[in-house]
Simulated scan of single mutants.
Amino acid sequence: MSFLLRMAAWAGACLALTMTALPAAAETAAAPDISACEPGAPCATPLPVKVVIVSLFEIGKDEGDTAGEFQLWKARRGLTMRIPFPQSFHDLYYNPETQVLGMVTGIGTARSTAATMALGLDPRFDLSKAYWLVAGIAGIDPENASIGSVAWARYVVDGDLAHEIDPREIPADWGFGYFPRQTKGPNDMSGKPDPSGGEMFQINPSLEKWAYDLTSGIELPDSKEIAKERARFTDTPPAQEPPFVLEGEQLSAMTFWHGRLMTDWANSWVRYWTSGKGDFVTSAMEDTGVLTSLTYLDNIGRADRDRVLVMRAGSNYTMPPPGVDAATYLLRENEGYAGLNAAVENLYTVGSVVVDELLDHWDKYEDATP
Rank of each mutant, 00 (worst) to 15 (best):
221 P>G: 10
165 I>N: 06
305 R>L: 10
262 M>V: 06
68 G>F: 03
9 A>P: 01
318 T>L: 11
97 E>H: 02
364 K>G: 10
223 S>W: 00
227 A>M: 11
327 A>M: 10
150 V>L: 10
269 W>A: 13
173 D>F: 04
226 I>L: 12
196 S>A: 13
10 W>L: 14
163 H>K: 14
199 E>N: 08
163 H>C: 09
16 A>D: 01
202 Q>L: 08
144 N>L: 06
27 E>G: 12
221 P>I: 13
1 M>F: 02
289 G>L: 05
339 G>H: 02
270 V>I: 04
232 R>A: 15
14 C>Q: 14
304 D>P: 04
93 Y>I: 06
256 F>P: 06
361 H>M: 10
44 A>H: 05
77 R>G: 14
284 A>R: 09
268 S>T: 05
246 L>C: 06
53 I>F: 06
156 V>A: 11
288 T>R: 04
116 T>S: 05
95 N>V: 01
28 T>S: 14
346 N>W: 01
21 A>I: 08
36 A>H: 04
297 L>E: 06
318 T>I: 07
79 L>W: 00
237 P>S: 09
133 L>V: 11
238 P>A: 12
85 F>T: 00
16 A>G: 09
124 R>D: 13
268 S>D: 14
312 R>I: 01
358 L>Q: 04
107 I>L: 12
365 Y>W: 07
93 Y>V: 11
311 M>P: 04
320 P>A: 14
251 L>E: 11
59 I>K: 05
188 D>P: 00
111 R>W: 02
193 P>M: 00
127 L>K: 08
221 P>W: 01
185 G>T: 02
142 P>L: 07
124 R>L: 11
92 L>W: 00
340 L>N: 13
267 N>T: 08
311 M>S: 13
58 E>G: 09
236 T>M: 08
4 L>Q: 12
58 E>Q: 08
275 S>M: 12
161 L>M: 13
369 T>H: 07
95 N>Q: 01
68 G>A: 14
31 A>Q: 03
331 L>N: 11
131 Y>A: 13
251 L>D: 06
66 T>A: 10
264 D>Q: 11
65 D>M: 09
323 G>K: 08
